[in-house]
């Protein structure tokens, strides 16, 4: 444990601590015949004690004034977090209400019912996820027509939440280009040290059929940068999910783009997982998966902030001044 001073030059005043030892240190009484006074050991002892108390008090005050502190230290810790790039859909369709899975027993939505939009549900889940996985590094890219990088990989919770909540202000943009977004987010890992497992978390409600070139590029980038892909799927009302296989055999890619995207992701050689937002267990499952699967150690620096230590020195000075004041008060009453 180290110790440092903010204003060490103030210690040049330390000779002031000798001040009590010069001079009488008390009012002189005019007395005609000092020789007649008897020797008083108690007075001598008290006088020495007073000088000592004053000396220590001055020293402690000077040390306190010079600003003692324990400097900030950075400790390298090894955690089991991941580097997670969030790719969030900001297309207009994310502003539509989120109905969840359509089942025979689910109550029908009625006119005027206040439903959360898909974007709100996504942000709520993501925000909770980020809060629960504080050891992970998060970055964010939003996409509609063009991918827009919002946040570099960081571990600071405040700015992560700021980026998540920003996605909730203002309407969504026009279109969706999942392919461009995926490529941009994957490229983000290029030229960065592999300090922890990498995950690309896609949050989106729809899909587009990707061209062959785009597919090849995504596959290549995911392998090259060793990125696992997680997809949090926001189901559109009455749309078949990503897990349901198409009912109609002809043109499944055109009719069920989300299913086709899911199949493409599954064909990747890098790890892939899909979650559906309507499943209340999805968030827990995702958190469990990140904790258990991505178990490579992540090196990060934790900063232990600087701590000021002046208060203790002031307290010491006060403890010296208290008996000193009491003694002087008694003397002045005699």
């Amino acid at each position: 444990m180290s110790f440092a001073l903010s204003h060490p030059l103030l210690l040049l005043l330390l000779p002031l601590a000798l001040l009590p030892w010069f001079g009488a240190g008390r009012p002189r009484r005019v007395y005609p015949a000092l020789a007649l006074l008897p020797e008083d050991p108690l007075s001598r002892w008290l006088s020495a004690a007073e000088r000592l108390l004053a000396s220590i008090a001055i020293t402690a005050l000077l040390v306190a004034l010079s600003g003692p502190y324990r400097p900030e230290v950075e400790i390298e810790r090894v955690g089991h977090g991941a580097q997670m790039m969030v790719l969030m859909d900001r297309s207009r369709s994310m502003d539509q209400p989120f109905y969840g899975k359509h089942t025979a027993t689910a109550p029908l939505p009625y006119l005027g019912q206040q439903l959360e939009t898909k974007g709100q549900v996504a942000r709520r889940l993501l925000s909770e996820f980020a809060a629960r996985r504080a050891q992970d590094m998060f970055g964010m890219v939003i996409f509609s027509t063009k991918p827009i990088q919002v946040l570099p990989l960081t571990q600071k919770p405040e700015i992560i939440q700021a980026a998540i909540s920003a996605a909730g202000i203002g309407r969504g943009l026009a279109e969706t280009d999942v392919g461009g977004g995926l490529i941009r987010a994957l490229q983000f890992f290029a030229d960065r040290p592999y300090t922890g497992s990498r995950i690309l978390l896609l949050i989106s409600d729809g899909a587009a059929t990707l061209g062959l070139a785009t597919r090849a590029r995504i596959q290549q980038l995911a392998q090259q940068h060793r990125v696992a892909l997680y997809w949090l799927y926001m189901r559109t009302r009455n749309s078949p999910g990503i897990f349901d296989s198409p009912h109609r055999a002809e043109d499944p890619e055109g009719l069920y783009p989300q299913w086709s995207l899911h199949q493409f992701f599954r064909s990747l050689e890098t790890p892939y997982r899909a979650y559906t937002a309507e499943d209340p267990q999805a968030l827990e499952q995702a958190i469990r998966d990140v904790s258990s699967l991505q178990n490579l150690p992540l090196h990060y620096l934790e900063t232990i902030p600087r701590r000021d230590l002046h208060r203790g020195w002031y307290a010491a000075a006060a403890l010296m001044l208290l008996p000193l004041t009491a003694l002087r008060w008694v003397e002045s009453r005699q």
Binding site: P152, K156, I159, A162, A163, S165, A166
Partner: peptide
């Protein structure tokens, strides 16, 4: 389009700096 809501500048100096540097014309949709 809002990218991120205001955050404290001293604690997030590096992040905001990187963000500003990354802004370019290709973000235009």
């Amino acid at each position: 389009l809002l990218l991120f809501t205001p955050v404290e500048v001293c604690g997030h100096y590096d992040e905001i700096r990187t963000m500003l540097a990354d802004i370019d014309w290709s973000m235009a949709w």
